[in-house]
């Protein structure tokens, strides 16, 4: 017994957009998770967008008209989240950190998406020696600790030190290289599965060219799960960026604000009980990653009709009323 929920023709295109349509068909706990995720993600996005307007100071500002900022000062009225060992305002740096994060995420995910999907499509459909080499290469890279690979890449790209743009691109490219095998594997596996599907074979018996088969039939059907991978990889990009920053391979503190680097600086503060320098950038990472993950997971659940469940109790309750209605 299959019950498909299909978008009927008269609903507006707005309601069919991925996130909005998901929100409309969610309910109960799932809706709660999706809404929580969306709120956190939007908050992150707004912070990044309006950081210059909200932040009271610049991210690398350690003095103003009234003189140098105090160092490692506890939160007070002026520095609501306190200051760091170098006298930067933690609140401002945390806000600006969202900007850096979003640049890196977008650059990394977009680059790896393009390269990974294309390689996966071609490799999976055409097969042969190209496919075999790609698979061994992708598997080798995939099995390798991604943080180590990102470290190696950032050494290659920037020798570990960098400006704002250079730093962001270095981090993004390092992360891209790590992610390409993931997109490659997912798309290739999907293409391999679809290749044996009758609708692809029916195009082959018609005599459609490989390009036509790949781009009219396979591309859209094999990228079904990509929104999910997109959100999950966005979070991984952010975590990798933070990891790089923590090991000192991020962006110079004067070039941009980066949460992982700030946490690195905060480690020694923690030993002496100074909590505010680490807590806030750390929480920023956690909440952003949680937000994106919740959105991705909820969308994944909602995309699969088999995964959507109603409790027995609820089913009983709903049908009881229809039963009563029927007998009355």
């Amino acid at each position: 017994m299959t019950t498909q929920t299909l978008p009927s023709a008269n609903t507006s295109w707005l309601k069919q957009l991925p996130v909005i349509s998901h929100l409309r068909m969610s309910s109960g706990l799932q809706r709660g998770m999706l809404v929580a995720g969306l709120v956190l993600s939007v908050l992150f996005f707004l912070c990044a967008l309006f950081a210059p307007l909200i932040a009271p100071f610049d991210f690398a500002q350690s003095s103003d008209a009234s003189g140098d900022f105090p160092r490692q000062a506890a939160p007070d009225a002026k520095f609501i989240w306190g200051t760091t060992a170098t006298g930067y305002d933690v609140f401002s740096r945390t806000l600006y950190g969202a900007q850096t994060a979003i640049w890196v995420i977008v650059a990394a995910v977009v680059m790896s998406l393009f390269v990974g999907v294309l390689l996966g499509l071609i490799s999976g459909y055409l097969g042969g020696w190209f496919d075999r080499i790609m698979v061994v290469l992708a598997d080798a890279i995939y099995a390798f600790p991604s943080l180590l690979l990102a470290i190696v890449m950032s050494i290659v790209i920037s020798q570990g030190q960098s400006s704002l743009f250079g730093g962001i691109m270095a981090a993004a490219i390092s992360i891209t290289v790590v992610f390409i095998p993931q997109y490659f594997r997912v798309v290739r596996a999907e293409v391999m599965r679809l290749k044996a599907e009758p609708f692809v074979e029916s195009a082959q018996v018609i005599g459609a060219s490989p390009w036509r088969v790949m781009f009219t039939h396979l591309l859209r059907n094999s990228t079904r799960t990509l929104p999910l991978i997109f959100t999950l990889n966005a979070t991984e990009a952010l975590l990798t960026l933070a990891g790089l920053g923590f090991l000192g391979f991020g962006i110079e503190p004067t070039a941009a604000s980066e949460w992982g680097y700030d946490l690195n600086r905060a480690m020694s503060d923690a030993t002496s009980g100074i909590w505010w320098t680490g807590l806030f950038p750390g929480l920023a990472i956690v909440l952003t990653v949680m937000g994106l993950t919740l959105v991705g997971e909820s969308m994944n659940d909602l995309n699969d009709p088999r995964l959507r469940r109603f409790s027995r109790k609820k089913a009983k309750r709903i049908t009881q009323s229809t039963q009563r209605g029927a007998t009355q």
Binding site: E197, P198, F199, E201, S202, A203, V205, T216, H217, R220, N221
Partner: peptide
């Protein structure tokens, strides 16, 4: 040469 497949649901591109 024409070909008709067994599973009508799977032999059309859903998009």
């Amino acid at each position: 040469i024409g070909f008709v497949f067994q599973d009508p649901a799977a032999s059309f591109n859903p998009h």
